[in-house]
Simulated assay, not measured.
Amino acid sequence: MKLYTRGGDAGQTSIIGGRVDKDDARIEAYGTIDELNSFVGQAASLIDSGVFAELKEELLQIQHELFDCGSDLAYAKLSEDRYKVGAGLSERLEAWIDRHESDNPPLEKFILPGGTALAAVLHVCRTVCRRAERRAVTLGRQHTVNPDVLTYLNRLSDYFFAAARTANARMQVEDTEYVRSAKVFGRKS
């Protein structure tokens, strides 16, 4: 099997059920999810210690789910019975976030992305995830999208934030507070 087809040489690509320009909102959305998946793989590759064993498992699960998200966005026309992403995935992410945050130090102010190499890459995952979410929202203005993908991406960026803090905390590296930040976390609305 050859990796190249030459089918996209004129600036179009195939999606499930048709062809679109390579800069179509659908391609931008699932292409950004693919980019995110690569960064998640990079984060997982930095984990070689037993102290992060469950985090590596979570990241591997997320990689599979990102493929599911991309698949749900890759259809020209898709009915709900074909969706791979459901509400249960976001609920599971919430449980993971809560578990990570229960072990993290209290947070009152915005923090700078960074700390350990793993935390820094997880912050990159967070920001690319936010971009993927924005691309999916744009796509949703033009075409029907699985709303559970939008929820999943929103929750996933929160997960990456919590996981980055966990990566720092377990290595006893303090998060660096943004010096001009007001106290924004832990306030009652």
Rank of each mutant, 00 (worst) to 15 (best):
D24P: 01
L55R: 00
G17W: 10
E35L: 06
Q12Y: 06
K56F: 01
Q42L: 15
G41K: 01
S45A: 15
Q42C: 09
Y30M: 11
R19N: 12
I33D: 09
I47S: 05
I16E: 08
V20S: 06
V40D: 05
T13H: 08
E28Q: 10
L55I: 05
S49W: 02
D34T: 07
A44F: 01
A25S: 13
S14C: 14
L46C: 04
T32H: 03
K56E: 04
I47M: 06
A29Y: 02
T13A: 13
G11F: 12
G31T: 10
Q42Y: 04
G18L: 12
Y30E: 14
R26C: 11
G17D: 14
S38L: 12
I16L: 15
K22T: 02
G17V: 13
V40T: 06
T32C: 11
D34I: 04
F39S: 09
A53T: 05
Y30K: 00
A43M: 08
F52R: 01
R26F: 02
G50I: 12
D9N: 14
A10N: 05
D34Y: 03
R19C: 13
E54C: 04
I33S: 04
S38A: 15
G31L: 10
G17H: 09
L36N: 06
S14N: 14
G8S: 13
Q12P: 00
N37C: 10
L55W: 00
L55H: 00
G7Q: 15
G41Y: 02
G50Y: 00
I33H: 03
G41P: 02
V20W: 02
V40M: 07
R19W: 05
K56P: 01
E35V: 09
G7P: 00
G7Y: 07
D48V: 11
D9E: 11
F39K: 03
E57I: 15
R19S: 15
A25I: 04
G7I: 11
S49P: 01
S14V: 08
L46I: 07
R26K: 08
V51L: 11
F39L: 14
D23P: 01
E28G: 02
D24V: 11
E35G: 07
S45F: 03
K22G: 02
G18E: 11
G8P: 07
E57V: 15
D23F: 08
R19T: 13
A29P: 02
L55Y: 00
G7D: 09
G41T: 12
G41S: 10
D48N: 13
D34E: 15
G41M: 09
R19E: 14
A10P: 01
D9L: 13
S38V: 13
S14R: 12
I27P: 01
K22R: 09
Q12H: 07
K22A: 06
D34Q: 14
R26H: 05
D34P: 03
V40H: 02
R6V: 07
Q42V: 10
A29E: 12
E28M: 07
I16A: 07
I16F: 15
G18I: 13
E35Y: 04
G41I: 12
N37Y: 06
E35S: 08
R19Y: 04
D24W: 00
G11L: 14
I15T: 05
D48Q: 09
R19Q: 15
D48C: 08
F39Y: 15
E28R: 00
V20Q: 03
F39R: 10
F39T: 06
A53Q: 07
R26Q: 13
A10W: 04
S49T: 12
V20M: 09
G50C: 03
D21N: 15
E28L: 07
R26D: 06
